[in-house]
């Protein structure tokens, strides 16, 4: 039996970064019951790790979005294919690419509507997750398309880019919305 429940909850909460009340609820049987020595014993645990992650060769992609509200792709110097997401090397020609400015219009190539997301997306469902064809790019990029009625999403829907007000240098800095003509 747990000897000092308050102490146990205090330490558990600190360890897994979850409020004590929620842990208490989840471990009610272990805390208040009288489980046998052989009953399965569960413990609160967490695996986490922090990063200072480098974007390497595509750093400019995120700087252009963050600092200039400008979307860039990369163009293969040999075959001319325009990549978005960008890559600094073409995997077909094995040659370097160069940065090309892209406009803010796009179209839904395929999509889905997520009604049940991960714990990171609590309160954000339902949302549209789509593969989007940005004008000027030869590949599709995954992005969210925000609209009031998610059921109106469809393949071929015309889109416009929107940038977040306070940008951090990640894919959450922009998204798409239905173009004027779709409204």
């Amino acid at each position: 039996m747990i000897q000092d429940k308050a102490q146990w909850l205090e330490e558990a909460s600190k360890k897994i970064k979850v409020p004590k009340e929620l842990i208490e609820k989840a471990f009610k049987d272990e805390l208040d019951g009288n489980p046998s020595l052989d009953a399965p014993l569960e413990i609160p645990d967490i695996m986490d790790i922090t990063y200072k992650y480098t974007y390497g060769g595509i750093s400019r992609f995120f700087r252009e979005i963050r600092d200039n509200k400008q979307l860039y792709g990369t163009k293969c110097t040999q075959c001319g294919k325009v990549w978005l997401p960008p890559r600094i090397n073409c995997n077909e020609c094995y040659t370097p690419t160069q940065w090309v400015k892209l406009g803010g219009t796009a179209e839904i190539a395929t999509y889905t509507i997520v009604y049940y997301g991960t714990s990171v997306f609590f309160g954000k469902t339902p949302y549209v997750c789509a593969f989007v064809k940005v004008a000027g790019a030869d590949t599709l990029i995954m992005q969210n398309v925000f609209m009031e009625d998610v059921k109106k999403a469809r393949v071929g829907m015309k889109l416009t880019i929107q940038f977040k007000e306070h940008r951090n240098g990640d894919m959450g800095d922009f998204w798409f919305v239905p173009a004027q003509e779709e409204l």
């Binding site: 974007y55 997401p85 395929t110 999509y111 889905t112 997520v114 049940y116 997301g117 991960t118 990171v120 997306f121 954000k124 949302y127 997750c129 789509a130 593969f131 990029i141 995954m142 992005q143 969210n144 990640d170 894919m171 959450g172």
Partner: peptide, 16 residues
């Protein structure tokens, strides 16, 4: 970098 932040799920991965 490009897909996890968009809220892709296993089901969405098949739905696309």
């Amino acid at each position: 970098t490009f897909e996890n932040p968009m809220g892709l799920t296993a089901a969405a991965s098949y739905a696309l």
